[in-house]
Computed example of a mutant assay.
Amino acid sequence: MKLEFSLKYLLLSIAIFLVEVLIATRLKDIFFVRAYLGDVIVVMLIYTLIKSFFKTDHNEKLILGILFFSFLVEFTQYFSIAEKLGFREGSLMYIIIGNSFSWIDILCYAAGCMMMFFLIKIKDFSFYGTR
C-alpha cells in the first residue's frame, strides 16, 4: 500500500457515509434497511475510505482484510467490549463498537465484501480505470 490521496474515493466515502446516516436516522423504522442493508454498506464505506488515502494493487487482499476486521468487531460485541472499556450506552464509541453480536451481521459483512469483490472485478471499482 502506498499513501496517495484520491478525491474521487473520498467523495464516494462521504456519499456512502451520508447513506449510512440516513439509514440510521430516517429509515430506522424499516427493519430490513436498518438491520441488514446498513451492515452490507458499511464494509463498502471502509473500502472507499481506505482507498481515499491509500493506493493498492491488491484490492482482493484489502477486501479480505476488511472482512476479517468486520468479523473481529462483531465478535468483540459478543464479549460486550464497549461496556468493559467504559463507554456509556448511547455514546459515539459505544455505537461504533456496537453492543450485540449477531450471526446475521457476519453474513451481511460477507455479502458486502462479496459485492465489493464483484464490483472491482467488473470495473476495478476505480472510476473507469483512473486509480
Rank of each mutant, 00 (worst) to 15 (best):
L37E: 13
K28L: 07
S91G: 13
E89G: 03
S13L: 02
D105P: 09
I50T: 00
L27Y: 15
Y36K: 12
L62H: 09
I106S: 09
F101A: 13
L37Q: 01
K55F: 14
T56K: 10
I95Y: 01
G38W: 02
F54I: 12
D105G: 07
L11P: 13
M114E: 10
A35M: 09
F32N: 01
T48M: 03
R131Y: 11
Y78I: 00
S52F: 05
R26I: 10
M114S: 10
L72Y: 09
G86N: 12
I30N: 12
L22S: 06
M93F: 05
K55P: 00
E89K: 03
L45Q: 11
E74Q: 11
D39S: 02
F31A: 06
A35G: 10
L64D: 07
T76W: 07
I16D: 06
M116H: 04
G38A: 06
M93Y: 15
L12V: 02
F101P: 06
A82V: 01
F127V: 08
M114D: 15
K2V: 09
F117I: 03
F5A: 02
L64M: 15
L49F: 04
S91A: 07
Y109H: 13
I63T: 00
F71K: 02
G90V: 06
L10N: 00
I122E: 09
A15R: 04
T25G: 09
K121I: 00
F54D: 01
I16C: 12
E89W: 04
L11R: 02
A24D: 15
G112K: 07
I97Q: 11
L3I: 10
I50G: 15
L67R: 03
I66R: 12
Y9K: 02
F75H: 15
Y9V: 05
C108T: 13
E20V: 11
K84M: 10
Q77L: 10
L67G: 10
F101W: 15
L107V: 09
R131A: 02
K28A: 12
L12H: 07
L10F: 07
G129Y: 07
L49H: 04
G129H: 15
A111Q: 02
L10S: 03
I122Y: 09
L92K: 14
L92N: 04
I14Q: 13
C108S: 13
D39G: 00
L7W: 06
T48R: 12
K8P: 00
E74M: 01
F69T: 01
E89I: 00
I81L: 12
L37S: 10
C113H: 05
C113M: 05
Y94K: 06
A111H: 00
F53T: 15
G65R: 08
R26V: 11
L12K: 07
Y109L: 08
L45V: 04
G112R: 04
L49Q: 00
I50E: 01
I50R: 03
A110W: 02
S102T: 03
V33G: 15
I96W: 02
F117S: 05
K8A: 10
